[in-house]
Amino acid sequence: MSLLRFEEKMTAVTRFWKENQLGLAPWLFLAPGIFMFLLYVIIPITQSMSISLYEWDGLGQKEFIGFANYVELMDDEAFYTSLKNNVIWLVLYMLAIPGGLFVALFLNQTVRGIRIYKSLFFFPFVMSQVVVGLVFSWFYDPNFGLMNVIITSFGFEPIAVLADERLVTYGIIIAGLWPQTAYCMILFLTGLNAISTEQIEAARLDNAKGWRMLWYVILPQLRPATFIAIVVTVIGALRSFDLVSIMTDGGPWGSSRVLAFYMYEKAFSEYGFRMGYGAAISVVLFGIMMIYITWVLYRMYRDERGA
């Protein structure tokens, strides 16, 4: 009797599944991914926003202080230094895009061994930024770094790039441009490969060559590659934490800080954790990033509609 009822129940479940599987299946597939993503990404964003309204050392009681952290930020010179450096990063990092294009054009040939050359040019991107940072720290070292060996051999005074307040940020950015240019290069190489030979030949017949060819024929066809290069370069610039931490630890005297680094420094400061203040800095950084994310999403939305 009960067995019969059980079977009846099962067939009901099966029928329900059969009738609704197209509606249910996507949610079953999505559930684990959405759960993890909400737990570790989406919810923490809102939590950070709320923590930024508190004074909190990470352990004890949180004390609600409204917008006091943000008010404090307005008068924090270190915050402005970080913000200014972020802008410098953002602007100079863009050099990776023409730089990558230039290297890609240089390497887009079919001579023997060119594949190995392409891989080796791409090398810096595969290494960790920690390694890149260490590599450049030695390269810049005023006593024995290769850069200064070269400079002094031309009769100039050695330059302590990472100890000079005016130069330090640029020195770190150059280190960052190294892997980033490699990344853009590989994007453009792929893009160049996909350009139809017929179009190029046709343009050649019309006497297009050199710069004109690049500007009017090649670049328009490289638009998808350029878009991705911009996307990854902006993210790279705003995420610049590793190199600053490895190469200078924000120094000298905090002059190479960026927002990402300053936030970490405040939250885990040796003078006591200031999670609320750190969170406020990260909310500002998030706000800047949000402008840009909106632009990317808008473009994707347009493409989705168009498709």
Binding site: L22, S48, M289, I293
Partner: peptide, 28 residues
């Protein structure tokens, strides 16, 4: 699958991917 919130969920994943790590740091 086509369902109403498809694009919103997709964009949530895409946008979350671009977020600066620091805003996740304290809660994570």
């Amino acid at each position: 699958y086509r369902f109403k919130s498809n694009l919103i969920i997709f964009f949530m994943f895409v946008a979350g991917n671009f977020v600066p790590f620091q805003i996740l740091m304290v809660p994570v």
